[in-house]
């Protein structure tokens, strides 16, 4: 399931995901193979933090484990760091049914 062209320090959780997760801390300036392209980290990646596996357009859904975890609030380049500065929740509590369980 992991993309063979992605550095083993990154974990691709499911096919079709557009982000990978760092298995361990990776220092700023590290050169990494990310889905077939070499990327130099512009900032340190904490353990469990996310990196874009391809160019992601503003408004596009971020998919982890095959499930959407929110949408990009701005364009994210291939290899870009993905966190609260460019990813926001799509979850709107007002859209869920409000009837109580019987």
């Amino acid at each position: 399931m992991a993309n063979s062209e992605t550095d083993p320090r990154l974990l691709v959780l499911a096919p079709g995901d557009n982000i990978a997760v760092a298995r361990l801390e990776i220092a700023v300036g590290t050169a990494l193979q990310v889905a077939g392209r070499s990327v130099t980290l512009q900032r340190a990646m904490g353990f469990g933090h996310k990196i874009a596996l391809r160019d992601i357009a503003a408004g596009e859904r971020i998919v982890k484990y095959g499930a959407p975890i929110g949408s990009a609030t701005q364009a994210i380049p291939h290899g870009g760091y993905v966190h609260s500065h460019n990813l926001a929740s799509d979850y709107m509590p007002s859209t869920v049914p409000v009837e109580a369980a019987p």
């Binding site: 997760v21 760092a22 904490g46 353990f47 469990g48 933090h49 996310k50 982890k64 484990y65 499930a67 959407p68 975890i69 929110g70 993905v82 966190h83 609260s84 990813l87 926001a88 929740s89 799509d90 979850y91």
Partner: peptide
């Protein structure tokens, strides 16, 4: 949760 790399409630719930 955010320090640990989680960004959204969906991601945490997942």
């Amino acid at each position: 949760n955010a320090d640990g790399g989680l960004t959204t409630i969906e991601e945490k719930s997942l």
